[in-house]
């Protein structure tokens, strides 16, 4: 049995018996690289020498990883997957069980879903009558499909499925300002009307841009959705 195979088996045994917590950064890097190449021992030394830690390697620009150490795209993908999947799951898991009682709460709630994305995105959170999120926020649409009007049916279906009393939606203006367009206002009214047929309130519509975040409930724009039930949802500014 080759040295590489012996080392690989040893690392796997340690991981399976004691978990990653018992392993040093160097051992974890070796273990990961052993999935994709035979020269994992020498590549590990080079990576740790250049980047210092597992986290820095996972945070590294993949092209820089490949250039610095010649590890190849096959191995670089594995490290990139860790940071990308973690980020993906962290955003997705925000934030079941929180209360969104004010416009400031809603803005803080939705901001993380948009900071890492450059395309338009539409997200929704379903609430109880006590303004508690009944499920994690759902991303309804991305890119060209991220229009409130086009997603009315999906939003309504989700709210019905989760037995929601209210809904807050948010969409992004990635390359523009957080200024509600006439289209944004019209689709807000349309959605509010659609939801109200089933006893569900559209509580707010948040628009997120690179440097600002606006709640349509806070604006002076004449919108009838504000006259409907909102379970005591308040307008407050972020400190």
């Amino acid at each position: 049995m080759s040295d590489a195979k012996l080392l690989r088996d040893e690392l796997r045994k340690k991981y399976l018996e004691f978990g990653l917590e018992a392993m040093s950064d160097e051992e974890v890097v070796r273990l990961v690289l052993s999935l994709s190449c035979n020269e994992f021992d020498s590549f590990t030394e080079k990576l740790i020498e250049g980047f210092g830690s597992l986290k820095s390697i996972e945070d590294a620009d993949p092209q820089a990883l490949v250039r610095y150490s010649d590890i190849g795209e096959r191995s670089a993908v594995l490290f990139r997957m860790v940071s990308e999947i973690s980020r993906c799951l962290a955003v997705k898991n925000v934030k079941k069980g929180v209360y969104l009682r004010t416009t400031a709460d809603a803005k803080s709630f939705f901001a993380p879903l948009f900071t890492d994305h450059r395309e338009e995105r539409l997200a929704v959170v379903c609430l109880s009558s006590r303004l508690k999120a009944v499920a994690p926020a759902s991303v309804i649409a991305e890119g060209a499909a991220a229009s409130v009007r086009a997603s009315c049916r999906r939003i309504t279906a989700l709210a019905l499925d989760l037995k929601a009393d209210g809904v807050i939606i948010a969409h992004s203006h990635p390359s523009g300002k957080a200024v509600p367009s006439s289209g944004d206002c019209a689709s807000t009214e349309l959605l509010a009307s659609a939801l109200s047929r089933f006893g569900i309130a559209l509580i707010d519509h948040i628009i997120v841009a690179a440097d600002d975040c606006v709640s349509l409930r806070e604006t002076d724009i004449p919108l009838s959705f504000r006259d409907r039930e909102c379970f005591g949802y308040k307008i407050t500014k972020l400190l």
Partner: peptide, 24 residues
């Protein structure tokens, strides 16, 4: 994370961290 690295912080104009990239 000890190492002679430059950590690039990708920030929003509001000062939120979007992502990090590490370069030797």
């Amino acid at each position: 994370n000890h190492g002679n690295v430059c950590l690039l912080l990708d920030m929003t104009p509001r000062g939120e961290l979007r992502s990090t990239k590490c370069l030797p």
